[in-house]
Structures are given as structure tokens and as C-alpha cells.
Simulated assay, not measured.
Amino acid sequence: MTTKNEVESKIRTKVVVSERDFSIDSEYDFLSSNAPRTGAIVSFIGRVREFSEREDITGLHLEHYPGMTEASLNKIIELAHQRWDIQACSLHHRIGSLQVEDQIVYVGVSSAHRDEAFDACRFIMDYLKTEAPFWKKELTQDGDYWVDAREKDQQARARWQSSASDQS
């Protein structure tokens, strides 16, 4: 027999790592369908931009370790669910070669309340940038180069660690 607390503690999760683009409408439908307790849906969409530390980015190439990547993404979502009462999460990350203006990543979170949805979405994105096993090569007119997580990404992740110790 399932108790009310067990039902409320379950989270619907969708994790996709693919060369194919994602549909924002489909992701929204996943988060909002059959969800009468949902009062907020927050989403983040990352795109390839024409600059980074250099001004001449023509595209990106992303690689990953199949199986390990999906497990890592599911773990990040579970960490968010341990901190916030989120009801559903959709995470789609693209791999392969992408051009400027292409979509790279989608993170969507639903919750009863907006604060939890906003915080969980930002947390997932901050952890994804530093913890998920993706390798990113920036493509430029002068050649291609691999990039690591930036210091600002590490700082964003560290903020969540210090706020967790504040809650203890």
C-alpha cells in the first residue's frame, strides 16, 4: 500500500543526452501534464553563443561518456529533489557538433511553489556545469580547443555547498 507521503515524494524525471535538438513545447508538456499540484514551472535553455573567453567562436563540439553521463545527471536531479519539493524534472543535453545559436541544454523543473522551482533549476544547472561528464571543444576560425569548467562555474556550485551547511 502506498502512503500519501510516498506518492508526494516521487518525482517524474526525464533525462536525455542526444545529438537531436529538443522541443520546448514537448518539455513543457512533460512537466505540466497530469500535474494538478504544480503551481510553478521554471526552465532554462542554454544556447551556443559566438563568444566565450575568445570572441571568434563558430561552434561547439560536445562529447560524453554514455551511461556514466545519464547516471550523473540523474544523481544531480536527486540531489535537487533532496533539497526542494520538486515534482518533475526534465533535462536534455545535446552532444556532437553544434553551431552558434543552436540549443545545447534544457533544464525544466516543476513544483508547487516558484521559489523551489527557481532554486532547483539553478542548482541543477550549476552542478551540471561542474559535475556532469561532458567534454566541450570550442570551435574557432583559428582552430579548436578543449575547455574546462570555468572558475565562475566552480563558484556557483560552491554557493550551494555553503548554503547546505548553513541549513544543517
Rank of each mutant, 00 (worst) to 15 (best):
L73V: 15
T3C: 10
S18M: 07
Q82T: 05
G59A: 10
V15N: 02
S23I: 05
E19N: 11
S52D: 15
Q167W: 04
R122M: 11
E70I: 09
F123E: 10
C121N: 13
G46Y: 08
A120W: 08
E131N: 12
G108Q: 01
Q99G: 04
S97I: 11
R150Y: 09
I57N: 07
S97E: 15
K129F: 06
Q161D: 15
D21C: 10
F51M: 07
K75A: 15
A149N: 14
P66I: 07
Q87P: 06
H113R: 01
G143L: 04
S32D: 02
F123H: 11
W146N: 09
A71W: 05
R12D: 13
K129C: 03
Q103W: 03
S165G: 01
I41S: 00
W84Q: 05
P36K: 06
A120C: 07
L60R: 01
E63Y: 09
L128A: 01
F44L: 10
D25V: 03
F22Y: 14
G67S: 05
I41R: 00
A88N: 02
E101V: 06
E101G: 03
F44R: 02
D56C: 04
T3G: 13
A40R: 00
A117I: 01
S26P: 01
L62D: 03
I57V: 15
V147W: 08
K129H: 07
Q141N: 08
I24T: 14
A80Y: 07
A158C: 01
K152L: 06
S111N: 02
S163T: 15
W160I: 07
V105K: 01
I11W: 05
S97A: 13
D153V: 05
K10R: 13
V15I: 14
D119H: 12
A120V: 00
L79A: 09
W84A: 02
L60K: 06
S72G: 12
E27F: 01
Y145N: 12
I45H: 02
Q155F: 04
N5Q: 13
A71L: 09
V105S: 04
I57L: 08
G67A: 05
T58G: 01
T130W: 08
K129V: 04
S90Q: 02
Y145R: 12
I24K: 09
A112E: 14
D85R: 01
N34E: 10
E6D: 15
D144Y: 05
E50M: 05
V7K: 10
E78M: 09
F118R: 03
I24A: 09
I45M: 04
R94G: 02
Q167R: 13
V7Q: 12
S168M: 09
H93N: 12
D85E: 11
A117T: 03
M1A: 14
H93W: 07
E53I: 07
A117E: 04
V107K: 00
V48Y: 06
A164L: 14
P36D: 05
V109L: 05
E55M: 06
L139M: 13
G39I: 01
H64D: 10
R20H: 12
A117C: 08
V15P: 08
D102N: 14
V109Q: 04
G59H: 06
E55Y: 02
V15D: 03
K152I: 12
Q167H: 10
S163K: 14
R122S: 14
S110C: 11
R37M: 15
Q155Y: 04
Q82Y: 10
K136F: 08
G59T: 05
I95D: 00
